[in-house]
Amino acid sequence: MCQSVAPQASQSKIQDLYRLAKEHLSGRPPSQAAAAEIAEALSAIPLSELGVEVTNGQQVPNDARGVRGALGRLMGRQQSNGHASSSGRPAPMTYMHIHEEPTFSLGIFCLPKGNQIPLHNHPGMSVFSRVLTGSLHVRSFDWAQPSQDVHRRGGKARLFMDRVVQEGDLPAVIYPTSGGNIHEFSSVTDCAVLDLLSPPYNRMEGRDCTYFKEASPLQNSKVLLEPFKPSDEFLVGNQPYRGQRIFTVSK
């Protein structure tokens, strides 16, 4: 449904994004003005520069491997290839890692139609998320009473969003305690999502990814979220990124 191809763009909008990320993302939540500037830069990157093309009806490449390390901590079980299973399940999701450093990471999720990334959190993190292609149902929450423990143990959460987003929509901007920090993705069509995380997941620094399930009915826009382990059918593969490279600089 999406695959990596050689970039054709003559200008590097992704380099502009990198420059802004270096300037504004220090590991703390960015200011509202900085977040708007980063979101605008995220929107300006063309698909050709990212090396993404839509290939409806085709499978993801055979060289997809289980994600470990770079994607870090938001992952499914290891898979052997990117084909749909003989049982008729959707082709597994894949991830294209673009760049990571201590204060931010950038990559692309490819979700064939019918896939889902369960509710998961981003403790102490800000997230910029843009749907590049297709349509995605997003259901997201924020903790009713944010704390260090609630990210691991769960608790009452307030519904922030429950709607379909698609290519052309403005990027979502998520903060540690607002904007839908706990969210679930369900692919309505084949789609690709560009994610910028600040700072990246890091278990040693207390930013581990925890998955949640809704343990009570939604009432007055609130629900109880409990941690859970995703099923064996939750797969994320690693797909090589062949888009425009980022030229890194020291601050």
Rank of each mutant, 00 (worst) to 15 (best):
T189I: 06
P199K: 12
V164G: 02
G154K: 03
L111S: 10
P171C: 08
P171I: 10
T210D: 09
V173P: 14
N121Q: 07
G155W: 01
L159N: 04
G180M: 02
L218E: 03
Q166C: 14
I117L: 10
P171K: 11
L119K: 06
M125L: 11
V131S: 02
D208A: 15
V165I: 14
R207I: 02
R130N: 09
I117W: 01
R130E: 06
L196W: 13
S126M: 00
V164H: 04
L218D: 07
M125I: 05
T177D: 15
L170H: 15
H137T: 12
G155R: 07
S140P: 13
Q166Y: 10
A215L: 00
K213C: 09
E205T: 12
R153G: 14
F141V: 06
I174W: 02
G134S: 09
P146F: 03
E184T: 14
M204E: 15
P123F: 06
A215K: 00
G154N: 04
L170R: 15
S147E: 05
E184P: 12
C191Y: 00
S140M: 11
H137W: 15
L111T: 07
F212V: 04
P118Y: 04
S186P: 09
G180S: 06
L218W: 05
I182V: 09
P176K: 07
D142F: 01
G114A: 08
G206L: 08
A157Y: 03
G206P: 07
A215I: 00
E205K: 13
P118D: 03
M204C: 04
I117G: 01
P118R: 01
Y211S: 06
S126P: 00
R207Y: 02
G154C: 05
G206Q: 08
T210F: 11
A157H: 01
P176D: 06
T177Y: 08
D169V: 10
V165C: 10
S187T: 10
Y201Q: 12
E167S: 12
R153A: 15
V173F: 13
V193D: 01
V127H: 12
T133A: 10
C209H: 11
M161W: 07
R163E: 15
P123A: 10
L136I: 11
Q166L: 13
H183R: 04
F212A: 05
G179A: 07
D169I: 11
N202Q: 15
V138Y: 02
P146D: 05
V188F: 07
E214S: 03
G180P: 07
D190F: 00
D190K: 05
